[in-house]
Simulated assay, not measured.
Amino acid sequence: MLYEPPSVAQLKQWKEKLGFSGAQMANILGLKSARRWREYAEEAKQQGIPPANLFMACALVALSPAQVDHVLKLMREVGATIDLKTPE
């Protein structure tokens, strides 16, 4: 698999396009806090968002609620415990 993460500038543009706060970005990316989002959005660090996190965020933005629920159901069938509305 070839993966090159979006640049910090591209992530910030996406955040603005979505009209999301740092906390909302952290939530869709599966990060623990808005602070963690800020670390990914910091020009000086440029660590790159992992592909699984970006995939999750894009799925949450692009898929309908029913489609997201279907994926979460499959995750639970595999054995995961997941509730997107419950903080860690």
Rank of each mutant, 00 (worst) to 15 (best):
A26G: 05
A66L: 11
L74V: 02
E16F: 07
H70G: 03
G48R: 08
E4I: 10
Q67N: 04
A23Y: 06
F55I: 05
K85H: 10
L72T: 01
Q67C: 06
N53G: 03
G22R: 08
P51T: 03
R36N: 07
L60E: 14
L18Q: 15
E4V: 14
K15R: 15
D69H: 14
L2F: 14
T81V: 11
A59F: 05
K12T: 01
S7V: 00
R36I: 01
S64M: 08
T86D: 12
H70S: 13
E39C: 05
D83W: 07
V78A: 15
S33T: 04
L72Y: 14
D83E: 08
P51L: 11
A62V: 01
T81N: 10
P5K: 10
P6H: 09
A59Q: 09
Q24C: 02
R38C: 03
W37P: 00
A26E: 02
L29K: 06
W14R: 14
E39L: 10
L31I: 01
A9Y: 07
R36T: 11
Q24P: 01
P5D: 04
A57D: 12
V71G: 06
K85L: 11
E42G: 09
A52P: 04
I28V: 08
Q47M: 15
A23S: 13
L29I: 03
K85Y: 10
A59T: 03
C58P: 00
A23V: 06
E77H: 12
D83T: 04
R36H: 07
R76S: 05
A44V: 03
P65H: 04
K12Y: 04
R76Y: 08
L54M: 11
L74K: 15
S64H: 13
Q67D: 13
E16S: 09
